[in-house]
Structures are given as structure tokens and as C-alpha cells.
């Protein structure tokens, strides 16, 4: 880890001021920053510790929705009774992520900003070519070991998948990121790699996530997060789905449905095509399976990650059937 200076911010404004300086990085849970600093991927000159700031934590849930402070810990949110009741998918996405220790450290704001687990991104000394780390240098992943790489939202420059779980649930339920002066939907917060994979979010220098709000909905209340992986725990998703569902009064016709995918795309991936195909339809095994295949529209594989194109729709289907009471 490169030598850095340490600044403990005493207010959010001080933190933002400090973050304006080139070479500075905000330290919240530290689980991404310190990990990547050890890998040599992030080399801050100044680390601005915001973990002691007050007023940026807290979880409020009411009839309109939830507001989660950026410094609330993953574990706190996962175990919050209000979140569990109104947003089961959000709670589940958190408790299925990382480990209990990491969930006690990592904050909600930091969780959104976690970086890809692409092996090539994480080992700069061996794989200098990485457009995300060093724009214009190339991509080492293409032609390499791609089992965990994205099949959706990729570009010629980058196929690194977004590794998080929480953001997948958030994007399904139209959550909004508060950045102090402005708000952005979670869907718009994350950027596709395109020709600028180094730019992963719309966050500007000096900006800081202060809170996340999630509007209430019947679909969010009847929701789940399904995560499929090789290891039973403590692993990133091979494919995951956040799904919420609201029926019409008949209890069979879909009034509202939300579907988002994790582990398969370069950003948290809302699949509106699947939603549109099911709204107004009676839920059945057949309608769900047919609609779920739309989740892979535009998918492109790069060798070993081809299985995700087969797997992800099955995960979507199972999650829909589960919230629909059919599985």
C-alpha cells in the first residue's frame, strides 16, 4: 500500500472539500478502498476518513418508503425490521452478500461504489492492460479467464461485471441516490462502460453519497433476492435476481413486477423487457419461463461466461415463481 496521509473529517462539508483534491479518497467501511490499495489498484495520497461523521447513518422507514443514510452499515440495514417488512429483497441482498464481518464494516454508500472483481483489474503488475484502470491500455480479460465476467452491458473496452447485490435490489425498486446537492436514480447512477469504462458512476469529484431512498410499493413488499453461486456463502453471484410482484385483485394477474439482475452485467441490470412481458398476464410456469428468457436480450458471451446466458433466466424465473407463490 502506498504511503498516504490520513485526515479524519469532522463534517460532511469538510469531507467534500477534502475530496475535491486530486489524489484523495473517502474512507467509509474501507472494504473496497483498503483492499484495492493493497492490490495497487487504488493509490490515494490522502485518505479522508468519514466513518466518524454523525448524521449520515440512520435508517428510516415509513409508509412512503425508506431512507437509508450513506454510512449505515450493510448488516444494520439487513437486520432492520422495517426494511425486512417493506423491502425483503433489499434485506436479503445484503444478508447474502460478503460475510457478517464485512457487513459490519461496509457502508451502504460504499457498497454501491464497490469495484469489479475482474481478476485482471485487480493485478496491475501482471496485467498492465486494463481500460478501466488505465484508459487506452487495453483489456486483459478478453481472451483470458472470463467465467465471472459480464454478458450484458459490455463494450469493446470492458467486460468486467458489477459485483454487488444491494444495487440490484435497489435498481429494481426505483431507488434514488442522494448526492448532497442533487439526486439521481440508482439506474442512472451507474454508467455502462462504453468507451469510458474508467467512469463507473455519475459521481463527480467532491461529491459524496449521503443517502439512498427507496419508494414503497406493493411489489417491493412482496419481493425476494435470489443469489446463485458455486459456494454456499461468502461468494459473489454467478447470477442473481431481485424480483418484486404485485397481483391484481384476482391474485393471478400481474399488476406490477420488477426484475433486476446481478452477477451478469456491467452494472446493476433492470430488465424491463421481462416486466413488460408479464404485466397484465396471468402468472404461470409457461408465461414466466418465456418472459424470463427476455432477460438475456443483447447478451454476448466471452468464452467461459457463456453459462450465465443459460443460468440467469432460470434464476429470474425461479425468483418470479417464488414471489408469485408458484415455487
Amino acid at each position: 500500500m502506498r504511503d498516504f496521509s490520513y485526515l479524519r473529517a469532522s463534517s460532511a462539508d469538510e469531507a467534500r472539500q477534502a475530496a475535491l483534491q486530486a489524489g484523495s479518497a473517502l474512507l467509509a467501511g474501507g472494504t473496497t478502498l483498503l483492499d484495492l490499495a493493497k492490490c495497487g489498484v487504488m493509490e490515494p495520497e490522502t485518505v479522508v476518513d468519514i466513518t466518524h461523521l454523525s448524521g449520515l447513518g440512520g435508517i428510516e422507514v415509513d409508509a412512503n418508503g425508506a431512507r437509508i443514510g450513506a454510512l449505515a452499515k450493510m448488516g444494520e440495514v439487513a437486520d432492520n425490521v422495517g426494511i425486512r417488512a417493506a423491502f425483503p429483497a433489499v434485506s436479503e441482498s445484503l444478508s447474502l452478500a460478503a460475510s457478517a464481518q464485512l457487513r459490519n464494516m461496509a457502508t451502504i454508500g460504499g457498497n454501491l461504489l464497490q469495484r469489479t472483481r475482474c481478476s485482471y483489474f485487480r493485478e496491475p503488475a501482471v496485467f498492465p492492460a486494463c481500460h478501466k484502470r488505465n484508459p487506452g491500455s487495453g483489456c486483459s480479460a478478453m481472451g483470458g479467464i472470463t467465467r465471472n465476467h459480464a454478458v450484458l452491458g459490455t463494450s469493446d473496452t470492458c467486460i468486467a461485471s458489477y459485483p454487488g447485490d444491494l444495487a440490484v435490489a435497489l435498481v429494481a425498486f426505483d431507488a434514488v441516490v442522494e448526492l448532497g446537492g442533487r439526486t439521481v436514480s440508482v439506474d442512472d447512477f451507474f454508467l455502462l462502460p462504453g468507451n469510458t469504462p474508467e467512469r463507473e458512476t455519475v459521481l463527480e469529484r467532491g461529491e459524496m453519497i449521503t443517502a439512498i431512498t427507496v419508494p414503497s410499493s406493493a411489489a417491493a413488499t412482496n419481493s425476494t433476492y435470489l443469489k446463485v453461486r458455486d459456494r454456499q456463502s461468502y461468494e459473489f453471484a454467478a447470477a442473481s435476481a431481485a424480483v418484486g410482484l404485485e397481483f391484481e385483485a384476482d391474485g393471478r394477474t400481474v399488476r406490477d413486477i420488477r426484475v433486476a439482475l446481478g452477477g451478469v452485467a456491467t452494472k446493476p441490470w433492470r430488465v424491463r423487457g421481462v416486466e413488460q412481458a408479464l404485466i397484465g398476464k396471468m402468472l404461470s410456469l409457461e408465461t414466466v419461463e418465456t418472459a424470463s428468457r427476455l432477460a438475456m436480450e443483447g447478451a454476448v458471451s466471452h468464452g467461459a461466461n457463456r453459462y450465465k446466458i443459460e443460468l440467469a433466466p432460470r434464476v429470474v424465473a425461479r425468483a418470479i415463481l417464488k414471489v408469485g407463490g408458484l415455487a
Binding site: R117, S119, Y120, E123, G144, I145, R231, S233, Y234
Partner: peptide
């Protein structure tokens, strides 16, 4: 290049308690 790319305990998976 003959590199073992999953050279860490997050990518070379050994069983957890839950397994």
C-alpha cells in the same frame, strides 16, 4: 502467460462452514 489468476481466497474457493 501461465498465471494462476485466482491466486487468493476470494477466487480460489475452499469450503465455508455453510458448505
Amino acid at each position: 502467460n501461465g498465471r494462476t489468476v485466482n491466486n487468493n481466497m476470494g477466487d480460489y474457493l475452499v469450503p465455508t462452514n455453510a458448505d
